[in-house]
């Protein structure tokens, strides 16, 4: 559960070590099937395809895996995954380093980067609070965020967490902790999606959009 702040390559090593190589193909399928988006069936299909041409499809992949595992590490500042720490975003003088967008995970950071809408930096929390999954405030990277603020230069914190019960709970706790710092805190707006028709929106989103209306 608490793999958040650890280097992912450590986890990979410790998992593969105790495995007995009875059947390398089965091992490979089992390892692939653990990944998100893969089930046993799709893992088997991928492995079969690779085995058709191991020289061109497997060894380059193995090299790429090794390279990525050895080169990628979490950024000490924001928690992003990159080949260097501080990462290229935290290190970019063109970006507004005082404008910090707080996200749940690196996937959300990537989504925001794809949109090219955020010109500031990020802070990856590494999850949301979940009592049922045993993730408490101390398991999230809240302390490093407070440390960044204490170091100075932070002008605004943008909370971009999922709009679920756990996400809202996390946002609430976060705002509570940030309250003492005096830094302005904002949240992403909720409402009508771009290109979206009103009549298909659910009631909750429509009501939120109405509440968040603004002068045209």
């Amino acid at each position: 559960m608490t793999t958040i702040a650890t280097n992912p390559l450590v986890t990979v090593k410790s998992n593969s070590a105790p495995m007995r190589n009875i059947d390398p193909v089965e091992d490979l399928i089992a390892l692939l099937a653990r990944l998100p988006g893969y089930g046993r069936r799709s893992a088997r299909r991928a492995v079969l395809r690779m085995l058709m041409d191991p020289q061109r499809q497997m060894l380059p992949l193995a090299d790429a895996l090794r390279n990525a595992a050895e080169a990628v590490l979490p950024c000490d500042v924001c928690g992003n995954l990159d080949t260097r720490s501080p990462c290229h975003i935290c290190d970019d003088p063109q970006r507004m380093q005082g404008l910090i967008c707080v996200v749940e995970g690196v996937a959300d950071l990537w989504a925001l980067e794809r949109a090219q809408a955020h010109r500031g930096s990020y802070h990856v929390l590494g999850g949301t609070l979940s009592a049922l999954a045993g993730i408490g405030p101390e398991d999230l990277r809240i302390q490093p965020l407070l440390a960044r603020i204490e170091a100075g230069g932070v002008e605004e914190i943008i909370i971009a967490l999922p709009v679920t019960v756990d996400g809202a709970t996390t946002a609430h706790v976060l705002m509570d902790r940030l309250g003492d710092t005096g830094v302005p805190v904002t949240r992403l707006a909720q409402g009508v999606p771009i290109g979206g028709a009103l009549d298909v929106l659910d009631d909750g989103t429509l009501a939120a959009a109405l509440r968040a209306r603004r002068p045209a």
Binding site: A131, G136, P137, A168, T170, H172, V173
Partner: peptide
Amino acid sequence: ADPGWLDALEEQ
């Protein structure tokens, strides 16, 4: 009992 966490859950 992290009071902030409980506050947040109770508000929800």
